Amino acid sequence: MEVGHDALQSYVNKWLAAQPAQRVALAFVDPARHAGHIALAALEQELLAAAYGIREPHVAATKLNWWAEELAGAAQNGGRHPLTQVLFDDERSGRIDSERWLAPVVAAMAQLEEGTAADFGAQLAAASQLHGALAALETAWWFGESASPERAARVAAIAHLLHALRRLDDDAERDRLPLPMTSLARHGLRRDELRRAGAARNAAVRGQLEELTAAWREASRLAGPLSVFRAVESHAGERLARRAAGAAEPLQVLQHARPSGGLATTLAAWQAARRWRRGNAA
């Protein structure tokens, strides 16, 4: 099935705009040979944009319902969307259970009206529903159904919580805040103070970053491989979290961070690509 290059590229561009460090990963994942891998990453970005980027829950639900219908029927009709057309033209799609394709959409709809989590553990568990489903689909696509998605699911959830923290100013009025309730109470922060710099907000953000970096350390001990894209996202996120945690103005460091595309990121992408190729050759 031929899909228009411009139509597909517009979605890939949206993914790269959200994760500019992935341009490094594309040097190790040939778009000509692995179009499905890139289409899956772009599909993840589309689902996340619907789940988090649309402020009206009923509008987001409508969008996600469309994706549920699209993914449920794509195995039979080949898909209507440029991304699903690429994915379901690839033989890998037939080796993945239909429930894996639908699980991220179901999880996204379930969390649309969730409020602020009580503590970091609850926050991580809530994020793991959607991001764990996405990571399980990705792991099956890259490594086969027998590969464990445990580590990928955890780092996907952690990376999301870091991204949410970076948007603290923008999301201060939403029902689900990037900081858990225990953190707000510990630092005496009211909702209307989250947009204003100050010692209390700095301490709360720094505490959240310490929780995230500890979670990244624990995730490194979990089972399962990471795709090249997930490895780059995790590497860049962990480095940024550590750097911001040590800064006088941690939120400012998070919000003004430049895309990570240096030698360390390139090395992380190369190592992940080598593990992926060895796994496929086994």
Rank of each mutant, 00 (worst) to 15 (best):
R55S: 14
H160W: 14
V24C: 07
Q255P: 03
G261A: 14
L64K: 07
I54C: 05
A110I: 09
G224D: 09
H256C: 11
E2K: 14
A157E: 00
W270T: 11
R196Q: 09
R230V: 10
R186A: 15
M181R: 15
A125W: 01
D170T: 13
S128V: 11
E138Y: 03
S98I: 07
A32S: 14
D6F: 12
W15N: 13
E210A: 09
A172L: 06
P57R: 02
R151Q: 08
A60K: 01
L165K: 00
S98Y: 07
R176K: 14
G279E: 09
D97E: 10
G115T: 09
L168Q: 04
V253R: 00
P82I: 10
A248D: 13
R100F: 01
Q123Y: 03
I38H: 14
A126E: 04
L102R: 05
A231V: 10
E150G: 07
A264Y: 08
R154Y: 04
A50W: 05
N280F: 02
E193G: 11
L16F: 09
L165H: 02
L168I: 15
V228F: 00
S128T: 15
E2Q: 15
E210L: 05
W142D: 11
L48P: 04
E193R: 05
H235V: 08
H58K: 12
A42D: 05
K14H: 13
E138V: 04
E173G: 11
A272F: 01
Q9C: 07
A68E: 13
L226S: 02
D169L: 11
R174H: 14
H58E: 08
S128G: 14
D192R: 07
G144W: 06
D192C: 07
A264S: 15
R95P: 06
I38C: 01
Y11W: 15
Q76D: 15
A17N: 14
R151D: 04
H34E: 11
Q252H: 13
S260G: 14
S128I: 12
L71Y: 00
S260P: 04
R206Q: 05
A17G: 07
Q85L: 09
E114C: 10
W276A: 10
A35P: 07
V155G: 01
R23H: 11
N202F: 10
R174Q: 13
L226D: 01
T84W: 01
E99R: 14
L168N: 02
A7W: 04
P104R: 01
Q123N: 06
A159N: 08
G246R: 03
S93P: 00
S93V: 00
E113A: 06
R176G: 05
A214L: 10
R274F: 00
K63P: 01
A172N: 03
G121V: 05
A140G: 07
L161P: 04
A200F: 06
H163R: 13
Q129I: 10
G78T: 06
T62D: 06
D170P: 09
R196L: 14
V155M: 03
R196S: 13
R243T: 07
A107W: 02
E114I: 05
R243H: 08
S128W: 02
Q22T: 12
Q76H: 14
A42N: 10
A49C: 08
F28C: 12
G132T: 01
R154K: 12
L71C: 03
Y52V: 08
S220R: 15
A223M: 10
D171C: 11
A126W: 00
A156F: 02
I38R: 14
L240H: 01
T139Y: 00
R151F: 06
H163Y: 12
R92D: 03
G4T: 04
